[in-house]
Design a protein around this nucleic acid. Structure first.
Lengths: 135, 135
DNA sequence: GTATATTTGCAATATCGTTGCAAGTATTAA
DNA sequence: TTAATACTTGCAACGATATTGCAAATATAC
């Protein structure tokens, strides 16, 4: 699985990439850089984590999630994201209790009617509240 | 107008707060810290700008806007935002051409049906594309 | 105008993310 | 399997961004 993803994207298979990808696959929510660094611990250099995430974003393996504060969250791209083409039209949910960010893959972002003159290309939607685990 | 807002929130009237609030009122879009620093120029210390923005956010005069990258955007709260209670349910638009962020005050964020167990409290929506000026 | 409370500026510090380069590792082909 | 090549990693340095303590300056209340 992990190897498949890396190979499909023509990336060399290295320990760092394997570990980080593994973390994403085993996590149901989104991760920020700090989470990843905590998990990979002392194994890899900060810089390696940055560069790995950057590479994954470029290849369309993971994507950014918008937040209201200034943290950068990453989540796995489901389905058929390709290099430069994200099909990431699902809603993200941030739990106020446990602070986890969850991809609601089945909830698509609704269309909105924009004022005259505006042309939409992409939409992001983040809902916050209490998640299933914390209710 | 500017004095009203400050007084309503029980804030001392200082040059810094006046200037920054003035900038928000005269701007139709959202601003990031760098914009504000550019405008206030050499007049105020960076730290003052940070603290002023922080105070304004706490008082509910301005609010954060989520973005996909890691920039922090601020925009005026319209209507009746009070301390700790934002009624900020309009869509934000980011123009890919001019890079401005615009509050679409008339476009309200639609409700979405969440999976079982999830309780929504707040929603943010950001649409990107081409704005009226750049079309 | 004076006393009190708040705000500001400066300096120091912390955090975050990036870049160049040499050493290390993975991939390819023989 | 080994050697050549291409890519990735770690280190160190750097730059940008944001925060904190404290003394001086300013605003508010009396």
């Amino acid at each position: 699985m992990i190897l498949d993803i890396l190979k499909k994207n023509k990336l060399s298979v290295t320990d760092g990439r394997r570990k980080i990808l593994e973390l994403f696959l085993s996590s149901d929510g989104a991760l920020e850089h700090a989470d990843i660094e905590k998990y990979t611990g002392e194994i890899f250099d900060r810089v390696t984590v940055y560069r790995t995430l950057q590479t994954f974003v470029e290849k369309g393996i993971i994507h950014h999630i918008p937040t209201t504060d200034n943290s950068i969250l990453y989540a796995l791209c489901k389905d058929n994201c390709e290099e430069g083409h994200h099909h990431d039209n699902h809603v993200h949910f941030i739990c106020d209790e446990c602070n986890k960010t969850i991809c609601l893959d089945d909830v698509t972002i609704p269309q909105v009617k924009l004022p005259k003159g505006f042309t939409p290309k992409h939409a992001e939607m983040v809902v916050s509240g209490v998640c299933d685990d914390c209710k």
